[in-house]
């Protein structure tokens, strides 16, 4: 169910990016897609009632180096969280570049409407 909602969010973003005529709205659509994917990644690693994936002394058997089974069964998966952090940084970079290109284009054309920004054809 949650996955379906997440996919719906992705499709809304895709729709917005493909159909809208305003440059800024297209950028917003792309970012909604990006957030939907990030949300999906987080949900992959999450479990209900899970605990933070940080091992403390009580869960680690110092002699054998084994981690308690209870920890493994209840902690959330930390890897997707690391992936999402990286993906957020990347999307921040591309968002900054996209918005700055929008601003420069607005300075040149005086409009955000992509139907009027059509010098390249053929």
């Amino acid at each position: 169910m949650l996955y379906a909602l997440c996919f719906l969010l992705f499709m809304i973003g895709l729709y917005c990016a493909v159909v809208k005529k305003n440059m800024v709205k297209i950028v917003i659509g792309i970012m909604v897609m990006e957030y939907a994917v990030n949300l999906f990644l987080i949900m992959l690693g999450y479990r209900f009632g899970g605990i933070a994936p940080i091992v403390d002394k009580g869960q680690l058997d110092l002699e054998t180096g084994q981690i308690a089974a209870g920890f493994l069964n209840s902690s959330v998966d930390p890897l997707p969280q690391a992936l999402v952090l990286t993906a957020i940084v990347i999307s921040l970079g591309s968002l900054a570049l996209m918005i700055s290109i929008c601003i420069r284009t607005y300075e040149k054309y005086g409009t955000f409407d992509i139907t009027q920004i059509r010098r390249l054809k053929g």
Binding site: E34, I101, K108
Partner: peptide, 29 residues
């Protein structure tokens, strides 16, 4: 004018491509 327009077009399609790839990576994981 032309450079900015081309860059925006490239960037929108390129970003959509990248997001598809990231989604696929998530599904594979």
């Amino acid at each position: 004018h032309e450079e900015l327009e081309a860059s925006f077009k490239y960037m929108v399609l390129g970003s959509i491509g990248s997001i598809f790839i990231l989604f696929a990576v998530a599904l594979v994981y």
